[in-house]
Each structure stands twice: as structure tokens, then as C-alpha cells.
């Protein structure tokens, strides 16, 4: 039962690459799939780059890095993941696409494989409805950057079997992750509370209750947050905040989730945060996480 040794990660974007890094570092043979060869190459380079930096930072020795790299196998054909014991789906946040992939998996994967979906704003139940095996589908929401963040939110769909849930929590423990269990509700725990909080901070700024600097200083100084709301939004990206907030609003129809008008203006102006050099603050260095 607990002899799972091969993992497939579907999607070589930011989250998929981060998750593939976690899997190969934990010693799993990792089949890293993307339909687009250029995407896959970028993703594999990202994972290997992470291990090289870990060596230069002294977090990993050369042998460990080499071992982790040899665990990673890039594939562009879905049938090549047939012998995976755990499949982690991390493709675009698009319900139709995710369901389509799950339907394709029905014809390929073993009948005992666990199927994980890394969604931040979609319903696990809705994604699982694309599979003939919804009892084996579990929501596992990793935080970005996945190799550095310990938290994974675990959400069952309506048809998830108890054994699949338990096996998932055990598997995530083998990765060194800390799991929390949440209902399959929009935003799970972190985004459920973060999005209205950020929106309220933006609205306070817009209504003149404080400045970018004074609100960030007040929040870090009075609440012990590691950074203020506007520093955080600049790292997340205003476009990403807008997408996540809008998706949650569409499901909940609660105005606290709808991004304040200032967000749309900033996105229209291209002021997306650190990655464009300007958001709530301006930056000379557009790199994130010192990478």
C-alpha cells in the first residue's frame, strides 16, 4: 500500500516545476509531463537550477543534487506516465482543461494510483467529475514556491474515499510537508481569508485611511505579519490577485472577494508588481525570491 515510488507531475509551469522539485528531492522517480516541449524544457531547467542553487547555498551536497536530478524524467506523451503511483495535476487553472486531462488519465493510469489536483480556486468535486474514479481524486493545494513552503491544504471532493484521503496525507508527510484538512470550498483556508484581507487593505488605501507605507508599517508592526499587504501583493502580482479574487467572487458572489477598482487600473497600466518593476512600490530588481 505504502510502496509508492513513482510520481507523475502534469504541467511544467511555476507550480508544476515547484512540485516536481519537491518530489525528486524526496527521492521519488518523477515523471514530469507537459504537452509543450519548450515548456517542459524550461520546467526541467527550473528544477535543475533549483538544485544547483541549493548546492551553492550549501543546503545540498553535490551527490544529493545529482541524485535528485537523476530522479527527474521529462515526458511529452501522457501514456509515458502509465506506471505512476501518484499523479499530481498542476496544469492551467481551467476547469474544462483539468477535466479533459482526468478523462484521458482514465485510459492510462493504474487502478490503484492516487490522483491529486493542485488547484487554488476551483472545486475539487468539479475537477474530479472528469474522472471515472472520483473516489481516488484528492485536492492538494501547494503554496508558491512549493520547494520552500511547508504547507499543503488537503481537500476531499464529495466522492473522495477515506483510504485515498489517508494515503494522501501519509504521502505528503513523506515529502516533509505539513498538511491541513479543509472542506472543498472556494479558496480553501489561505486564499479564503487572504483575498478579502488584501481587498480591504487596498480599499483602505484608496479611501485615504493611510498610505502604502503607513498601512504596511501598521500591519507589520501591530500584527506581526512578515510583510505588509502591499509588499505581498507586489510579490504575488496584481494580475494574479485580480484573477484569484475574481474567480472566488464568481463562485461566492460576496463583494468582499471582488478586487477594488484600483486593481483594475494597476493591471491596465501594467503595474503588476515586482515582475514589472512597478506595483504599489517601484523596484530596480525585478527578480523574485532572490533567484
Amino acid at each position: 500500500m505504502n510502496q509508492r515510488s513513482t510520481v507523475a507531475v502534469l504541467g511544467a509551469g511555476t507550480m508544476g516545476s515547484g512540485i516536481a522539485t519537491v518530489m525528486s528531492r524526496a527521492g521519488y522517480r518523477t515523471l514530469f509531463y507537459d504537452v509543450d516541449e519548450a515548456n517542459l524544457r524550461r520546467g526541467v531547467a527550473g528544477v535543475n537550477g533549483f538544485f544547483d542553487r541549493s548546492v551553492s547555498l550549501g543546503k545540498l551536497d553535490r551527490e544529493q543534487a545529482l541524485e535528485a536530478k537523476t530522479k527527474l524524467v521529462g515526458v511529452t506523451e501522457l501514456r509515458e506516465i502509465a506506471d505512476a503511483d501518484v499523479i499530481v495535476e498542476a496544469v492551467f487553472e481551467n476547469l474544462a482543461l483539468k477535466k479533459e486531462i482526468f478523462a484521458l488519465l482514465d485510459e492510462i493510469i493504474s487502478t490503484s494510483a492516487l490522483i491529486h489536483t493542485n488547484t487554488s480556486t476551483l472545486s475539487v468535486t468539479a475537477i474530479a467529475s472528469g474522472s471515472r474514479h472520483p473516489e481516488r481524486v484528492v485536492g492538494t493545494h501547494y503554496c508558491n514556491p512549493a520547494p520552500l513552503m511547508k504547507l499543503v491544504e488537503v481537500a476531499n471532493g464529495r466522492h473522495t474515499a477515506d483510504w485515498a484521503h489517508k494515503a494522501t496525507v501519509g504521502f505528503l508527510g513523506s515529502l516533509g510537508k505539513t498538511t491541513v484538512v479543509t472542506k472543498d470550498r472556494p479558496g480553501f483556508i489561505v486564499n479564503r481569508f487572504l483575498i478579502p484581507w488584501e481587498n480591504r487593505c487596498i480599499a483602505a488605501l484608496e479611501s485615504g485611511l493611510g498610505t502604502t507605507e503607513s498601512i504596511d508599517a501598521a500591519v507589520t508592526g501591530a500584527l506581526g505579519h512578515p510583510m505588509g499587504p502591499f509588499r505581498l501583493l507586489d510579490i504575488v502580482g496584481l494580475d494574479i490577485h485580480q484573477q484569484v479574487a475574481t474567480r472566488l467572487y464568481e463562485q461566492l458572489r460576496d463583494p468582499r472577494f471582488f478586487p477594488p477598482p484600483m486593481v483594475e487600473r494597476m493591471v491596465a497600466a501594467g503595474d503588476l508588481g515586482r515582475k514589472t518593476g512597478r506595483g504599489f512600490y517601484t523596484y530596480d530588481d525585478t527578480r523574485l525570491f532572490g533567484s
Binding site: C143, M149, T178, V180, V181, T182, K183, R185, F188, I189
Partner: peptide, 22 residues
């Protein structure tokens, strides 16, 4: 019933780096 009190605090501390959960 979203989650247990402990899991809500753990999620926001680990996910957002807060010193204390809500």
C-alpha cells in the same frame, strides 16, 4: 466547519508567515 481551529491557524501561519494564527 471549514476546518479545525488548529488547522486554520497552521494554514495561515505556514502559508503567510504570520507569527500567530487568527
Amino acid at each position: 466547519g471549514l476546518a479545525t481551529a488548529e488547522d486554520i491557524d497552521t494554514a495561515l501561519k505556514l502559508g503567510l508567515g504570520y507569527k500567530l494564527g487568527p
